[in-house]
Design a protein around this nucleic acid. Structure first.
Lengths: 232, 232
DNA sequence: CGATCAGTTGAATCGGATCAAAACCTGTGG
DNA sequence: CCACAGGTTTTGATCCGATTCAACTGATCG
């Protein structure tokens, strides 16, 4: 059965631009896997057995200090690539934040395929370079921004990525009106803050009329300009 | 004239493993460039005209917030690759911390070469993946570690990298005995701290007998175990 | 031998963390 | 439909680590 043919991220993931026969080959070595919210795809330090493409949903990538403090390294949205090709151990944990579908490959199968099909390897290189850029921009946030600026940056990023990716069940994915795919605790882990600080900052933004919050997770950005200035 | 033949990083940089004829081609499109301490190779946001290999010396990669706060993204040691292939603008500033020699290529020349020689592209991919791993580990430091832990991590990293790279004029590069290639202010920028905090922590470590400091920049690690525990 | 710049030390301040408690969903069973 | 139990989130009070501001020390150099 050919998953790729009907794949929703077919044109955006690293498999884009492959020839039909290459897709067929790739289809043979990959398989679909469904993850429940909270389920993990890989653990930091484990043997890097699999790599994967996100088809739908959102995952968090995280690492931790020896005494258990967690730091989220980033989020993976549909069409993003997961795992560590050409390495032996996984550099992070990857955990589904909501119901998520991924397309997994044994790392060794994938590597062999990549070495034989340089177009795929090139795509992977471009994606890795972009990811490095994104990660470095995040370092500025963690190293130099205060709590308010961090929240502003995250809200803008989630808005942008939700739209770009069609975040799973995303009837309501709008750049200014979206659902947070994570809890307050997870927001805190992403931003290197505590849950209380996140809560206080969100409340402050609500009081200032910058955002609206319905329920726990539905957010509307009312004053995009203010957020952008904060996050700059 | 063939620089590559005598190149000191020939076996560690991305050009390693190329065939002799490939090296000859690469040699044609590259040229050596010497940078004084403080001189910049590229600026964030500028057109990405060049990419480069570090031959000797150390550079810092940095970015800044719109209001001028700086964050150093990482250090580049001999054999490291600089620049943003397959992208239009440079994602960071790269500035030499001491006298530095790089091997520069026009980005477009380099890209053409890489697309034709998949072995080079593969090396670049592996290097980019490693750099992404390193960058992500740094996020844990910026997001979750206190001042003491950050300094410990940096000292260990500089020791390791100085040895691995032979940091420029490095008669004295030992994993436990090395010269800081940067000022206190630059250390602060790397670690997301202030210069005063860096100074206080170094003094504290000296008083605790964990390190020795001679002059301003010569450091000896006396109790490696303690540092490793702090940085873990 | 001042002048200058990098680094250190001290005191006061502040932002975010921590600890504790109240408020709020959300799902369940009567 | 309501009550209530479980968790999550918000709010409040306090504390602490790092920053800030300021003064001082110590190298380096004309």
């Amino acid at each position: 059965m050919n998953f790729c043919q009907a794949c929703t991220v077919r044109n955006r993931a690293i498999c884009a631009d492959l020839e039909t026969y290459e897709i067929a080959l790739l289809n043979k070595i990959g398989r679909r896997r469904r993850l429940e919210a909270g389920e993990s795809l890989m653990w930091e330090g484990d043997d890097a057995v699999y790599v994967a493409n996100v088809v739908s949903g959102v995952l968090k990538l995280s690492t931790q200090t020896s005494d258990g403090r967690e730091q989220i390294l980033g989020l993976a949205y549909p069409s993003d690539f997961l795992g560590r090709p050409f390495g032996n151990t996984s550099p992070y944990n990857a955990e589904a934040l909501c119901e998520t579908v991924v397309c997994v490959f044994r790392r060794t199968d994938f590597e062999r395929f990549a070495l034989d099909h340089s177009r795929l390897e090139h795509k992977l290189l471009e994606r890795t370079l972009s990811e490095l850029d994104r990660t470095r921009r995040w370092m500025l946030l963690l190293g130099r921004m205060n709590a308010e600026e961090r929240l502003a940056a995250l809200l803008l990023e989630i808005g942008a990525r939700s739209v770009a990716a069609g975040c799973g069940n995303s009837a309501d994915a709008d750049i200014d009106r979206f659902e947070l795919p994570m809890s307050r605790q997870q927001i805190a882990d992403i931003l290197g803050l505590t849950i209380e600080t996140v809560s206080r900052q969100l409340t402050k933004m609500r009081e200032d009329g910058i955002i609206e919050i319905r329920g726990r997770r539905k957010v509307t950005i009312c004053k995009r300009g203010v957020l952008e200035k904060l996050a700059a």
